[in-house]
Structures are given as structure tokens and as C-alpha cells.
Design a protein around this nucleic acid. Structure first.
Lengths: 135, 135
DNA sequence: GTAAGCACTTAACAAAAGGTAAGCACTATA
DNA sequence: TATAGTGCTTACCTTTTGTTAAGTGCTTAC
């Protein structure tokens, strides 16, 4: 069976609905402001809570704690507790998080391309209403 | 407690930061509840406002109007007005939206896989706290 | 002996996002 | 005459999301 990809112009309504549902499912699991960032930050290896908070600019302890719980429940992150003094907790990606590889690669390479594109268009066009990068 | 090897951490920290920034930029442009869904819905060709609203389950006119403005400003969508009675407005993807091809492919195929995974785990495991699909 | 680090949690609050319902000005259909 | 369809916009309200600041209990470093 032929594989569908973005270059196929004429998608049937059915395929479109299937895509809508699939993208909807994906966004439900990994959408939101922080989830993907946390996963990216853990790609280099396990990190402790405060370490994570420092590496993800702008996240508060409350948001991080909540997102980590959610990521753990959804099977992306494993929480490991080392009892001792002080108690140390480390977070690491599960195997299942590895299945997001293509998504993360696509997103980050698109993000790099997008930043370049916008930087160029800002040089040309200094004062118009125009797309911006993250603040 | 074991001390961290600083050269190890430093090298990966740079790559990690670049990835974090790239993913951050991507999420800034196409993150949120609706943007990618609108783009997916337009992949089959141009659609009018109400047509779009019907094909994206759950979106309100207010949200759709706001997201379309944003997508237009950011160069993903082109708005075409046909003066006549009634005035017809159609939205279509720009060439730039095509650069999201890999992202959309990766996301929708991951979404499909994720749905299957969860459906299987729900059959095994009927009443535990466990990941869910979109409602 | 005080500061800082560990991993959080809680309360109080603010901002952002989004929904609902109504309306506008027009036309085609029943 | 009434209804529905066209593409929105507005006012109002709720929900979600997030922030800050403080606190907990213990330990090591200065």
C-alpha cells in the first residue's frame, strides 16, 4: 500500500478526518506549554527536579511538578527515588518516550528553520506587523 | 552522592539548549489547541470559514477567527475574499505551511500509534489510573 | 549559626484561553 | 414571513493555566 505524506495534495475527506483525529490524539498527550520541553530537556539523560527546573527557562516548581506527574502517568517519564539524606529524585525518559523521536526531530529542525526565516524577514522589514519569535 | 562529570554535562547542555530553543520557537508558532488542527483541515484544499468550523470538531467561531488571524499573520494561511452576494471568504495554506510537512507527518503517525497503544492497554487494564485518549 | 540545597506542596492570585449567545447586514429558499 | 446561510464581532463569563511567595524537614557547607 502506498504511504501517504504531506506532498500528496488530494487527501480524501476520510484521510483528512483520520489525520485530524491522529493530530488531536497527539496534542492531547503531548500538547501544552511544557510537556515537549521537559522531554527535550530529559533527552540528555536523567535529571533531578531542581536541575530540570533550571534547564527549562521560565517554568515554576508547581508547573513542573504537575507536568511531571502527568508525563509519568502517561508513560513518558520514569520517576526514581533514592532514599537517603537528602532524598534524591531523578526523572528519566522511558522507552515509550523514545517513540517521539521523529516528532521531536521534525519539530526542532522546523523550529531552527523558522527562526532563520523570521530573522531574515525582520532585517528586510523592520516595522511591519509580522511574525515573531518566542519572547 | 556521586559528583557529576562537568565536561560530560557541558557538551550535552549546549545541544540540549539549542533543541530547547528550537522546540520553543516551534511551539510559539504552531503550539496551542487549534493551530495544527486548522492546518491539517486545510491540507485537503481551501475551505470557507463555516466549512472549516464544521470540519474541526469543537471549535467556536471566536476561536477560529482568532486563530486564523494569527495563522495569516504568521504566513501559514492565505485569506482570499470573493466580493459578491454573499461575500465568500476562503482560506488556504501558503507554501510556507508546506514546510510543516514533516512535523505533521510525524505527529499524525505518532498519534495513530499512540491511540493503538492505549486501546490495547485499556483492554488489559480496565480500571487503573492510566493514560487516556482525547475525549 | 546561618545560608543554601534537596523536592516538593500549598494558598492566593492573575492572566490567558476559550465557550455561549447575541447581533449585523445581506440573500436565497420554504 | 420566517428560516437559514454567509463571515464574522462583541460582551460576558468560566475554565485552565500559570506565577509568586512561603513553608516543610533534613543536611551540608561557609
Amino acid at each position: 500500500m502506498a504511504k501517504l505524506n504531506s506532498s500528496d495534495v488530494h487527501l480524501s475527506a476520510e484521510a483528512c478526518n483520520a489525520n485530524l483525529m491522529a493530530v488531536g490524539d497527539a496534542l492531547y498527550a503531548i500538547g501544552g506549554k511544557w510537556k515537549l520541553r521537559i522531554i527535550v530537556a530529559l533527552k540528555t539523560g536523567s535529571k533531578r527536579f531542581n536541575e530540570l527546573q533550571r534547564s527549562i527557562e521560565g517554568i515554576s516548581a508547581k508547573a513542573l511538578a504537575a507536568e511531571l506527574k502527568d508525563l509519568e502517568l502517561n508513560g513518558f517519564v520514569h520517576r526514581r527515588v533514592f532514599t537517603g539524606t537528602p532524598v534524591v529524585v531523578s526523572y528519566e525518559l522511558t522507552e515509550y518516550a523514545g517513540t517521539l523521536g521523529d516528532v521531536l526531530d521534525a519539530l526542532s529542525s522546523w523550529g531552527r528553520m523558522h527562526r532563520e526565516t523570521i530573522k531574515k524577514s525582520m532585517r528586510k522589514n523592520k516595522s511591519m506587523a509580522s511574525p515573531n519569535l518566542a519572547p
